[in-house]
């Protein structure tokens, strides 16, 4: 699975980073850095939690 960010919707609120700090990090200017676009099997639950928690619905998990 691959993480896709809609950078128009994303405002850097950081819920994804709270859920999955190994996958996401908000930068000081509020932009989102995806640390690992293709989470491993052991990271999928955290990735899904990040997607579900996003207040602006900017994240999706898609098939590779």
């Amino acid at each position: 699975m691959k993480i896709v960010v809609d950078y128009v919707k994303c405002t850097g609120l950081g819920m994804c980073e709270a859920e999955a700090p190994d996958l996401f990090e908000v930068q000081d200017d509020g932009s989102l850095l995806v640390l690992n676009e293709c989470p491993g099997a052991d990271q999928l639950a955290a990735a899904q939690a990040a997607v579900d928690s996003c207040p602006t619905e900017a994240l999706t998990l898609v098939e590779d």
Binding site: G12, G14, M15, E17, A18, P21, E25, V26, Q27, D28, D29, G30
Partner: peptide, 9 residues
């Protein structure tokens, strides 16, 4: 913004 979620954790 790069720090707040680290404090949340």
């Amino acid at each position: 913004q790069s720090q707040i979620m680290k404090y949340k954790r």
